[in-house]
Nucleic acid binder design. Structure first.
Lengths: 191, 191
DNA sequence: CCGGGGAGTGTACGTTCGTACGCTTCCAGG
DNA sequence: CCTGGAAGCGTACGAACGTACACTCCCCGG
């Protein structure tokens, strides 16, 4: 038994500090000591709350995935029809590639881990699954899949480009990939 | 004055070993000692040939960019018309997302660095510029830009997906994004 | 008021790191 | 044959690392 003088925010602050540190300096520069300093907790807290640095990273990226899924929900969940969905997708691309350097960097770090370790790929699966659920409310499954990939590519290229493309180009690409009438004769598998 | 017993392959082997190590274990696990062991060179060679680990990484990713640009050249350079270009793009997406785990991982590592450090962004700029030069032989600049982003997204999503999409879906997405007749009323700027 | 025990921490240990630098090796010019 | 000096390497040093664990503190049941 015995509880009371516990600080339930400790764990959360450690996880938040971990993500901040990764976003600013990269996974290569993450250490128990640096996280502890940034979170304002003693070094001993690190091994007390987390069994090792691996577990800590996994849990931190789990929180990040929750956050980014919430961003997708917020943008795509409110769309009432196809047009609104297209506008929402464009908003998403431009917000991720412009406003939030932090989310972009963390996304890349997560993909890098996912490309090598199946444990992290589970997180990206959940993320892709959730975004497709939203897109499939307005588009057939094949189109949703293509649009999902397009979002990824447009966001990344826009964030890294020397001269980022404008919203008009984003919208045109979305319009083209969601044009399902007069289909090409290949690829089916729609419900 | 004084040359001969030099080994000009030393540098190259160190750079190759660096990329191999990054691909297999990630930037966080790169160190002088590990690279030296993998390359079969003594530790002292590391500081002799490179002024520090930063310079070593930059040069290694420079080599990687050269390699990946060559892959793009090889695939897209031979296409004679739009149809062949579309097929070549599909080949590219499927080769990168299926055969070469190494290239995919290194690409993600590079993007991760580029998202945070402008020095690495220069490398991605050169890469994007080169691929657009190829695409603009067959498509207008806006379409080339959209297609370039689509390649990125399709490759990544296919590599990370639990059940990767088939070639038909890749081709359909390419066909849609390259459909320029009956344009939407926004976005112009074609030559 | 008291003591038992769990929550939380400071510190110390063994390892690994980047880097500097004195040393060996070996060719070129005499 | 010798020898000057560049090319390349082995090793050592201080800093930083992850982790274990003995310890302090404080609440709660009595």
């Amino acid at each position: 038994m015995a509880t009371g003088h516990t600080d339930p925010q400790r764990r959360e602050r450690i996880l938040a500090a971990t993500l901040d540190l990764i976003a600013e300096e990269g996974i290569a520069r993450v250490s128990h000591r640096r996280i502890a300093q940034r979170a304002g907790v003693p070094l001993g807290s690190m091994t007390y709350h987390f069994s090792g640095i691996e577990q800590l990273l996994r849990e931190a990226f789990g929180r990040f995935t929750d956050h980014i899924v919430a961003v997708f929900d917020e943008h795509l969940g409110a769309a009432a029809d196809r047009d609104e969905a297209c506008q929402a997708v464009a908003d998403l691309v431009h917000e991720l590639s412009e406003d939030s350097q932090r989310d972009l960097v963390l996304t890349q770090e997560l993909y890098t881990l996912a490309a090598r370790q199946p444990a992290y790929r589970e997180l990206t699966h959940e993320w892709m699954r959730r975004s497709r659920v939203h897109l499939e409310k307005h588009f057939d499954p094949d189109t949703a899949r293509q649009l999902d990939a397009l979002i990824e590519g447009l966001t990344l290229h826009r964030a890294l480009a020397r001269e980022p493309h404008g919203r008009a180009l984003t919208l045109e690409a979305i319009a083209r990939v969601t044009t399902t009438d007069r289909r090409a004769p290949e690829a089916s598998d729609t419900p």
